[in-house]
């Protein structure tokens, strides 16, 4: 308690029980600005990761650069507010000026003289250490598809191409065929939950794609998916990092119908819809 008291005194605040602290403590623009800044930091760092799960999406920690960017925006906002009128501005500056000048703030001043240079030195020390991280990788997850491919020796135009099985035969049968193909070939990496977590997945970097994710097959046309399955990792353009993808070129193992049926399986099993081509002339 004594320590807490001296901390408060150091900050120039009389120590009071918590109940009255909020109201009494936040009584100058400087303290209010500090509180808003701290609150925004906590909100950005801890609060934002809670948002995606509300919409059923997986959460992830916020990258430091993004946190920094948001904080800069917050600081600019705070500065605009404190400098908005003359009196608030001078009230805001007062505690800063006091700590530099007032004889009764000598302890705080001394503490700043120790802490700030020490932090700067530590930061310099760590940034001067040699970097042993991997070189940055720039990989396009869904690179632009070619307009046509050669599939098992035959020309195939991808532009405007629909899944031919959707208008031929029984969809239920195609689903069952696709399921067989998936379980015999795709399962080991993409997993039975279709989340890219098969039992081989841990060995691969990049990790196998999750089809449950709203950012994969749900935003692609079936012809794009056909291209990716047929040509696999080796068929990726350079921006897709073809050297590291463990996705086989399935045209070496499967027929076109087998690939189209596994595509039907992927969409049905996940409940996603494929993106469709805009039909030409429809707008006119």
């Amino acid at each position: 308690m004594g320590a807490l008291k001296s901390v408060f005194r150091l900050l120039g605040a009389p120590f009071r029980p918590i109940s009255s602290v909020m109201g009494r403590f936040l009584n100058t623009p400087f303290r209010q600005a500090t509180a808003v800044l701290l609150f925004s930091y906590v909100l950005i760092e801890v609060g934002i990761p809670f948002i995606p799960p509300v919409f059923g999406m997986p959460s992830a920690p916020i990258p430091n650069t993004v946190v920094l960017e948001y904080l800069i925006i917050a600081i600019v906002g705070i500065l605009l507010w404190v400098s908005d009128n003359e009196q608030r501005w001078s009230e805001f500056k007062q505690p800063i000026h006091d700590i530099l000048v007032q004889p009764d703030r000598r302890v705080a001043r001394g503490a700043l003289f120790v802490i700030v240079p020490a932090l700067v030195a530590a930061q310099t020390y760590f940034s001067a250490q040699p970097d042993i991280s991997a070189p940055p990788s720039f990989r396009a997850i869904h690179p632009a598809p070619p307009s046509s491919i050669t599939f098992q020796g035959e020309q195939m135009v991808l532009d405007g191409l629909e899944n031919p099985l959707r208008s031929a035969g029984s969809l239920e049968e195609h689903y069952e065929t696709g399921k067989q193909v998936y379980y015999q070939n795709c399962l080991a990496c993409h997993g039975d939950g279709l989340q890219g977590r098969g039992h081989y997945a841990p060995a691969f970097n990049p990790a196998p794609l999750s089809f449950q994710d709203a950012g994969t097959i749900a935003m692609l046309t079936e012809s794009f998916v056909f291209w990716r399955i047929a040509k696999g990792g080796p068929g990726l353009p350079n921006e897709g990092a073809p050297w590291n993808s463990a996705m086989p070129a399935w045209e070496n193992f499967l027929t076109a119908d087998e690939i189209w049926s596994v595509i039907i399986f992927l969409y049905e099993q996940t409940g996603h819809d494929p993106r469709t081509w805009e039909v030409e002339g429809e707008e006119h």
């Binding site: 003289f113 700030v116 240079p117 700067v120 030195a121 530590a122 930061q123 310099t124 020390y125 001067a128």
Partner: peptide
Amino acid sequence: AVYVAPPVALALTLLFGL
């Protein structure tokens, strides 16, 4: 640089503060 930069940075910050 690992040995030289931190004391220099420390000294400069201190000087600036003063």
